[in-house]
């Protein structure tokens, strides 16, 4: 007996299509730029100002603002064209796993910048590439895998062709990844808007 359709493909298609409008890339890219910008502000400001806490708070506020903006953009751009869909809320287990993962990344980055300054850029590039590639492999999203490869290339470029290391290297890396993702996202969004004109009759 033949299966009537590939159920796994249908399930992963939902996740793939969630990102086809490029908004996720734009948001993630802006988040990376924000992270780089936050670090730059910390480095640029005079030490006696001691605005570390303020810049961190502004970065967090910016990140929350981006998430809010992403939701609003989905409501205004994607849902009227392709229909409304809500992904399931992450379970308590997956939230805990994500928190543990971010805590581990925090430890790795701190360790790199304090102990292994020269290795900050390549290891960070590897970590960011894994963050991008792992979900790409899960939902068979080729674009995310390419973005992971691009991240590795940025890391390799900064490591071999510049003398940026430590926090400056990390800042440059996040800035480059962020800018690239915003550009990729913007192109995707333009194509999405072209191929999905606003539906005239949204309901049956």
């Amino acid at each position: 007996m033949e299966p009537p359709l590939d159920v796994d493909d249908v399930v992963s298609r939902v996740r793939r299509n969630w990102m086809k409008d490029g908004l996720a890339e734009i948001m993630l890219g802006l988040l990376f730029v924000l992270m780089g910008g936050g670090s730059l502000a910390k480095l640029a400001l005079p030490r006696w100002l001691s605005l570390d806490l303020l810049t961190s708070a502004l970065t967090v506020a910016g990140a929350l603002g981006l998430v809010w903006g992403f939701k609003k953009a989905k409501e205004r751009i994607t849902f009227p064209r392709c229909g409304y869909v809500a992904l399931p809320q992450p379970t308590r287990m997956s939230r805990a796993a994500m928190f543990a993962m971010f805590a581990a990344f925090g430890v790795i980055f701190t360790l790199l910048m304090t102990q292994f300054n020269r290795m900050t850029v390549p290891v960070s590039a590897l970590v960011f590439a894994l963050i991008l590639t792992a979900p790409g492999l899960r939902v068979k999203g080729l674009r995310m895998i390419w973005e992971g490869v691009l991240t590795l290339l940025f890391g390799a470029f900064l490591f071999w062709f510049t003398d940026l290391d430590g926090s400056r290297g990390l800042m440059a890396l996040t800035g480059m990844i962020g800018a690239a993702m915003v550009i990729i996202g913007a192109v995707r969004l333009r194509n999405f808007l072209k191929s999905n004109p606003l539906a005239q009759e949204p309901e049956a």
Partner: peptide, 13 residues
Amino acid sequence: SVKEADFLYLLRE
């Protein structure tokens, strides 16, 4: 694989 979807989404998919 979703929490909920509307008619238009299902129609397109």
